[in-house]
Design a protein around this nucleic acid. Structure first.
Length: 190
DNA sequence: TAGCAGATACCTT
DNA sequence: AAGGTATCTGCTA
């Protein structure tokens, strides 16, 4: 069994972390206000595996992650490790990756796309192992409110605020607590 | 137009 | 076979 790498880095008061496994592929990512919670969450994602930790390590996936966080257009070179992801979650993640920066899609839209139901999609989106790399923050309720977001495996107000900030930084127009309809992603070729 | 049931679809264990 | 869900819709006022 290969030793995994856990790298964390602080940026602007927030901690970012990635777990890297075989062939430099990304197993999981996460971010949090506290490094302790961040590490606990990421370690829980790789139970029983030897893991080597680095703090304030500068590496490509971490730098990309911070760029995503800042809302910058980023062409990611990081390869994702899909090994532990179910077929259902895979199709959700692939749909999410298609949502362009500055646009949003609803749970219901994604459900239709993969022929599932909106609530099931909700659970799948919530299980996204690679927040920021796979833009789960671009999935919102059909009401076009911000909706829910969890960080470190737990729903929180902080998470929802963060989701809003991420969308704003990507240029999604938001009036009050509602996203403008023009930001809705219209999938091509359906 | 906001709030709220009740319905839905289906994934995970 | 049951339990859970980061939803949706249509009804009410």
């Amino acid at each position: 069994m290969k030793t995994l790498t856990l790298a964390t880095k602080e940026h602007g008061g927030t901690w970012f972390g990635v777990v890297i496994g075989n062939q430099d592929k990304l197993l999981a990512s996460s971010f949090s206000k506290s490094q302790k919670n961040l590490v606990r969450h990421l370690r829980a994602d790789a139970p029983g595996q030897p893991i080597q930790s680095f703090t304030n390590e500068s590496n490509v996936p971490l730098n990309e992650m911070i760029d995503f966080y800042e809302g910058k257009p980023t062409a990611s070179k990081t390869r994702l490790d899909w090994e532990r992801v179910s077929e259902f979650e895979k199709s959700i993640c692939q749909s999410m990756k298609e949502i362009p920066r500055g646009k949003v899609a609803s749970y219901g839209m994604l459900a239709k796309r993969i022929q599932s139901g909106p609530r099931a999609v909700g659970t799948g989106v919530a299980r996204n192992p690679w927040p920021l790399f796979v833009p789960c923050h671009r999935v919102v309720p059909a009401s076009l409110e911000i909706g829910n977001y969890s960080i470190g495996g737990a729903l929180s107000d902080y998470g929802c605020e963060m989701k809003r900030v991420l969308l704003e930084r990507e240029g999604v127009p938001i009036e009050g607590d509602r996203i403008s309809a023009e930001a809705l992603w219209i999938p091509t070729g359906v």
